[in-house]
Design a protein around this nucleic acid. Structure first.
Lengths: 214, 214
DNA sequence: CAACTGACTGACTGGTTTGTCAATCAAATT
DNA sequence: AATTTGATTGACAAACCAGTCAGTCAGTTG
């Protein structure tokens, strides 16, 4: 008897199909941008009719919101998971949160590209702003908390809010660089840059990759 | 005899009208985003017919490219002018280039918003990438050069490329923050963050605003 | 003043795109 | 096997929008 369960089905379960369409949306945004995105594009990428996309998401606007929410969820779960498996020390935990941003599953070219596209459009769309906003606030709060711990621990004369911001911006910035800057650099270079920033901020806790090697 | 020169004319000179339409485009992008931008929107903002927009720019795509080129030009001229009027020392010059990014004329909400919109769309549009790319490369080169000078001058054990990148990303990042992050902070806060970063990188040349005050 | 040039308008066209819906089909249930 | 449920399609309607163009008008030049 052949298996009837794991053979690809013509009709998929609701959640599976929705996830598949969202993946197709991410790819299509990466390839064509938000401005030129059409439902027919998305449908073609997913290998289904455009009517089915609307059947599952009601409206284009809704599909886009849910796609962004999916990306934001993924991002948050990723760094939170990293935080949970990290050791108890503030330094370890800060490093874990930062390194989580460079995990391959998160930094897919298509995902980065889609993320940037939403970011650019968010200026004029409160809906998008709100989806990212709450999760962002939590992320920032966490970073600030860890920096505060480190400042107290190491007796640094630094404003934890400023330092947390600097570190976050360097991480986010290297993301964007890897996408946009023409002569783009590698993920290794990006992480080295972040480690340099960490060493500059918290020299007693982190060694500069430069001096550590040479 | 009344003046015939400075009275507002119904028909404008070619360059004047083009500039006006570009300004209208920037405002409209800020208000509606690139994805929903229509020529009718732009025309309404400029107070002219949408036929005239096409008369001056041939095609929508062309209007957008020229608008982006205008923003990029403006940006470059701004920091280059700041560099020319700065003193001879590397520290002064670096500070001048960085502070130029916070001049009010450049950091208009509409301009920042439009800039972000183009940035987001640039992933999938080589045309946009190219317009920014060359100018960006020059900007990065300049920053790296100044950082290199400072490193030699102060005997820091730092990679100038990494430091230049960190500083640039903090500046760019505060820009984006002021636009996107929900509980946004002020331009003063942004500049303080950058000064903190400068002090962390080049402690012998720049004082942390924190310790300088307290 | 007459002729001319170039800016300007607004109606129109063709093509594209979102969203609807009736019909179809696969899978589960009875 | 018959019925039901819910996914799926493709044809269709309506809206929208970029781009065209014939004709108008303002400003200039001879």
């Amino acid at each position: 008897m052949e298996s009837t369960i794991d053979r690809p089905r013509r009709t998929l379960a609701r959640n599976q199909r929705r996830q598949q369409v969202i993946e197709a949306t991410i790819s299509t945004i990466a390839a064509r941008g938000l401005a030129r995105l059409t439902l027919t594009d998305v449908a073609r990428t997913a290998g289904i009719s455009h009517g089915l996309v609307l059947f599952h998401f009601e409206a284009k606007e809704n599909l886009l919101s849910e796609t962004l929410a999916c990306l934001a969820d993924e991002y948050q779960k990723n760094w939170q998971a990293a935080l949970e498996t990290a050791g108890p020390g503030a330094a370890e935990r800060l490093l874990a949160v930062i390194e989580a941003d460079y995990r391959p599953a998160i930094t897919t070219p298509a995902r980065l590209s889609a993320w940037c596209a939403f970011w650019g459009e968010a200026q004029s769309r409160p809906v998008y702003q709100k989806i990212c906003g709450e999760r962002d606030a939590f992320h920032i709060q966490t970073l600030e908390g860890l920096c505060k711990e480190l400042v107290q621990e190491g007796g640094y004369t630094l404003d934890p809010v400023h330092v947390a911001r600097i570190l976050r911006l360097v991480v986010e910035g290297t993301w964007l660089d890897m996408m946009t800057v023409e002569a783009s650099y590698s993920k290794v270079e990006a992480r080295q840059t972040v480690l340099t920033a960490l060493a500059l901020c918290f020299g007693k806790h982190f060694a500069d990759p430069q001096t550590a090697q040479g």
